[in-house]
């Protein structure tokens, strides 16, 4: 149970960083933390205490192994998160070149 609560805390921490922080870099770190929390949760869904990795030799009698599907899906999700992160870092660099600041309260040319 404890590990689920810790994952939730990690998720909320990321959400807090996105909502409350004013620095672009800290917001980006928040996005990354949310990604990690969700990937961790996905792995936990398929995990069972005391089971082995899902690599089963031909003649073995082991029945107790973790669900391999979430692990495969998490790989996809990590790649997506990586590409999103790369794009947002590039945007942050271009924003710094234009506005000379990382403070989102000073980046406010769009109104209405």
């Amino acid at each position: 149970m404890l590990i689920y609560i810790l994952t939730l805390t990690l998720f909320l921490l990321g959400l807090y960083a996105i909502i409350a922080k004013k620095n672009i870099i800290k917001i980006i770190i928040g996005l990354a933390i949310i990604d990690y929390a969700i990937n961790l949760f996905f792995i936990l869904i398929g995990y069972q205490r005391g089971s082995i990795a899902p690599i089963i030799p031909k003649n073995s009698t082991i029945k107790n192994f973790v669900d391999p599907l979430p692990q495969a899906l998490v790989l996809t999700s990590i790649v997506i998160g990586f590409s999103m992160l790369a794009l947002v870092v590039v945007l942050a660099i271009r924003l710094y070149e234009k506005y000379h600041t990382f403070d989102i309260t000073k980046i406010n040319k769009l109104k209405g």
Partner: peptide, 18 residues
């Protein structure tokens, strides 16, 4: 890649990825 466009893209990206 002008000021406003980058700002809008950043805003869209943060909300969209949440």
């Amino acid at each position: 890649c002008e000021d406003e466009e980058l700002e809008a893209a950043f805003k869209y990206l943060v909300l969209g990825s949440v």
